[in-house]
Design a protein around this nucleic acid. Structure first.
Lengths: 204, 204
DNA sequence: CCATAAACGCGAACAGCTTCGCATAGTTTC
DNA sequence: GAAACTATGCGAAGCTGTTCGCGTTTATGG
């Protein structure tokens, strides 16, 4: 059989099921947290058996990654709404990171499970997260690139690597936050400090 | 009963068992990787039942953390052997990171599982990893602090935050490496690039 | 010697995610 | 309309890390 039409009844049913699953997962994750939200409970709330979930998803973690994608989209949108393209690069970077921070602080699991997922090389969910991260890095790179063209950054600055460094800083600091070593505010400050340091350099 | 003597027969037996467990775990992790090394298989090789392992360890991941501690100790020692305290700060940092890199490259699981462990706040293994990381950050800070006293670094440089940033860079890059996105050499280069950027700053 | 206690060891059982084999519903081909 | 094929759904089973209750070894105190 050739490939099926996009309005195929089976696909439509599947899409509805998938939507129910994701919705159920979101609410349960919010109520109990990722680790305490049983797949069976999610399935029950979605009105189906636990094993059926695997028709739509390859692992429990993928249920969260769906949210991460949304959150990231939201971060970009909020940033773009208030972004001033002529503002100093450092300020624009900080503005983006602040927006992102604000959203992530409300979803503690997200940061954590995304990181956890990346520790399973080969799994699909790992690729998904890496891909999402790449998009964030891409946006940061865009900002940096503009700064470089305006000659606000050093000529030889490698914007891609710089964007990655900034991203790594945010991730690393958030691990400390998630482990209760610092408050959300301290987390934001640490990120800002780190980024400032990167811009200004350590050397005397 | 008061506390028992250090040469108590029960403790001695336990220490031998613990040693056997760790040895078995190391060999199996090396052969199959962490996720494919079953606790039952480890126990079998150690000559005991799977549940007995939990007399000595609180989770499977702790079996790896033992190795991480050793590896870190080894990295410090190797670094100290060849360290020249009067060398430029940036070179000393790079020398340490290179040593560490060389060791970690041989143990792919280590970075990954350490990171995974940190995504379980509250678990003992998470605290262990955080504590080990703190020691690494401490060493980096030591190097930076000396650079600052020699007025090679900016006066206002926050050495602790700087050390943390460097550490985050290494961790972030290694995730990419472990996911097959870059070779071990590219990983080392990326770390070096990132650190250089931090020293020299992005701003024109 | 006997009671008590502590560390250890074990097999069974538990709980979670995931896989499997089979049944069902929807679609196309003839 | 029958056959073939596909996406979906389901309950049972599998695998794994971990916990539990009980027995064993080793040491101490009376």
């Amino acid at each position: 059989m050739a490939q099926l039409r996009p309005d195929d009844g089976r696909l439509l049913r599947g899409q509805k099921s998938r939507a129910r699953i994701l919705k159920a997962a979101r609410s349960l994750f919010a109520e109990r947290g990722f680790d305490d939200a049983t797949l069976r409970a999610i399935a029950k709330r979605a009105g189906m058996g636990a094993s059926s979930i695997y028709r739509h998803v390859q692992s429990k973690e993928e249920l969260l990654m769906d949210q991460l994608a949304d959150l990231q989209e939201e971060a970009w949108q909020r940033f773009r709404e208030q972004d001033e393209r002529e503002a100093p690069t450092q300020e624009r970077v900080r503005a983006f990171l602040d927006v992102q921070h604000e959203l992530l602080v409300e979803n503690e699991d997200l940061t954590l499970i995304a990181l956890r997922s990346m520790t399973r090389p080969g799994a699909r969910v790992a690729k998904q997260v890496l891909s999402l991260n790449d998009r964030t890095v891409g946006l940061l790179m865009e900002i940096l690139q503009m700064g470089r063209m305006q000659r606000r950054l050093a000529k030889k600055a490698d914007v891609l690597e710089a964007a990655r460094v900034i991203f790594h800083i945010t991730q690393g600091v958030r691990i400390s936050w998630a482990n209760g070593l610092m408050t959300a505010d301290a987390c934001r400050d640490a990120i800002d400090t780190g980024v400032d340091m990167l811009f200004e350099g350590l050397t005397a």
